[in-house]
């Protein structure tokens, strides 16, 4: 079961006010050059099907409710990957009055993938780490502790 969890991470991609740079890089990590499907990655249309929530963007005020709803719609065991510098630190938009970031104020984040935008191979590595966390978390069911474990150093 743990092995299957590690080998079959299904993603749901959520944009919380991103500039579309990281979103393009997520798509790039599925293209022939990086081919994340070798790890069993599948981009799903519905959050109900997903294991890993990929969030991009600095979390605008409008997006907060949506992020919480979608996080609750993903069924456990689940993991959250923050893609890009924006969800980690709100990046250049820091102190903006339209933002309510960073992301780990609202949902527990497991892996941060820094970069503006991050390279596709960094995204694939982040997803692989999140899948390993997911497999560990599945062992101690029920109700995983929402751990904000930083596996990658966040660039300040």
């Amino acid at each position: 079961m743990c092995y299957s969890r590690r080998r079959s991470p299904w993603l749901f991609h959520m944009n919380s006010g991103s500039c579309n740079g990281c979103d393009i890089e997520i798509v790039a990590s599925l293209t022939p050059r990086y081919d994340a499907e070798q790890l069993g990655v599948r981009l799903e249309g519905s959050p109900r099907h997903a294991d890993i929530l990929c969030v991009t963007g600095p979390v605008t005020r409008n997006a907060v409710g949506a992020i919480r709803t979608v996080y609750d719609q993903v069924l456990g065991p689940k993991a959250v990957v923050a893609i890009g510098s924006c969800p980690a630190t709100t990046n250049v938009f820091i102190d903006s009055r339209t933002l309510d970031g960073p992301l780990n104020k609202h949902v527990p984040v497991d892996v941060f993938v820094p970069g503006c935008p991050p390279r596709p191979d960094a995204i694939v590595e982040g997803i692989a780490k999140a899948a390993a966390i997911l497999a560990e978390r599945g062992k101690k069911l029920p109700a995983p502790e929402p751990a904000a474990e930083l596996t990658t150093e966040v660039q300040q």
């Binding site: 299957s4 081919d35 070798q38 069993g40």
Partner: peptide, 25 residues
């Protein structure tokens, strides 16, 4: 057809087992 390598041979089996271990709303 898209020039990728694609999923490993056991992929649908892994997906099935993983889905069995997930919660339902």
């Amino acid at each position: 057809m898209q020039g990728r390598i694609g999923p490993p041979f056991m992929q649908p089996f892994y997906d099935f087992i993983k889905l069995l271990g997930k919660g339902t709303p």
